[in-house]
Amino acid sequence: MGLLDLFRRQPPSAQVAKERLRIIVAQERSARGGPDYLPLLRRELLEVIRKYVNVDPEAVIINLERDQGQEVLELSVALPEKVRGGKTAAAAKA
């Protein structure tokens, strides 16, 4: 790193890589060992939601959590900012 670099510093790319990996790895781990229908379920839910609200494909997050013999399917949808102020989450139990 030279002297000039001090004046035009961007976030280090390694930090960006780590953050992206942290998220994708966590997401893929939670899907692992889960039922095969989860990706399809996610896609169909997304289609239904998009009939009403134009959400980003990445805004739908499905999580399957196992807790003492009970499985909780958590669905979280981040609505676009124009529709409503912040983030809205809906949870469904299965």
Binding site: M1, P12, S13, A14, Q15, A17, K18, L21, R22, V25
Partner: peptide, 17 residues
């Protein structure tokens, strides 16, 4: 490159995996 922030370091990869 790790020192320059261009490459993930040992601890980063260790933490992710």
């Amino acid at each position: 490159r790790v020192a320059a922030g261009e490459m993930m370091g040992v601890d980063d990869v260790k933490e992710i995996l």
